[in-house]
Amino acid sequence: MTFSLFVEQVFNGLQLGMLLFLVAVGVTLVFGVMNLVNLSQGALVMMGGFLLATATKATSSYWLGLPLGIAALIVIAMLIELLVLRRLYARPHIDQVLATFGLMLMFNEGAVMIWGRDPVFMAIPAALEGSVTLLPGVAYPIYRLAVTIFAGALGVALHFLISRTRLGMLIRAGADKREMIQLLGVDIAFLYLMVFCLGGVLGGVAGMLLGPISAVTTGMGDPILILALVCVVIGGLGSVGGAFVAAMLVGMCDTFGRVLLPQALGAGTGQAIANMIVYLVMAAILIWRPAGLASR
């Protein structure tokens, strides 16, 4: 592998990692604060794609469609929280798993009922078309670079939100100090609603970013959800920093695994192991640290 190809693959890995981070951070926040596992996060990724495509088509502008799509995502996330999840916080995990699994089925098929079975179109906005030269000989698509930068910026904003604001303090207090938060006079129900919306919207935004490079179809969020759950497990449940490190690790391992392993081990075995590399890394980390990277 030449140096310029190596650089290009590093950027590819970064971009995949960033998208995974956006999905994973939603799962890990909801876990950390509400102690709830949310399998419907993949459905929100898919809804992000469909909503942005629809809003863009309706307004004939990506940049108008984006805020509209996000607004619609917020409404959907609120409805999920108010109608279903709110009733599950005090319930056993199996109820949470099944209700959010049921939601996932409903959204996946609901999208078919609303948008039909033919996929929906979504293009790269005109301003972000084309490619830039990163290094001599390395032309990289602007859109992919923009996705990486935008997702990274969201990550930084999230870091400040969590470390510097009152909402962040409450999130950090998390599940461990629930009683204390209530004593401080904070409306727990409202806090939970906010956190779920934040997590859901981040997942939906990942779907929006993915839309132009992938297919906006039913079930598009499911494979991402699984990879995001792996990131959450590797990073340590509830840890935003852990999820970030894990997402980068998964993005890089997946990208370089797919490129290098078939070359090193031959097509058949190499590809088989490349498919599993993410899970092998996870197993290795769990043997070393059973509660993930961020565990104390």
């Binding site: 056993p92 199996i94 209700a99 699994f101 049921g102 939601l103 996932m104 089925l105 409903m106």
Partner: peptide
């Protein structure tokens, strides 16, 4: 669209199960 209705039934089953299952499971966890 059976998948939608299956999902709906599961969600309703979980939400409406105020009875024995839930109480038992709550104790279990």
């Amino acid at each position: 669209h059976w998948m939608f209705y299956l999902g709906l039934l599961i969600v309703l089953r979980v939400l409406l199960a105020g009875g024995e299952t839930t109480k038992l499971l709550k104790r279990l966890d």
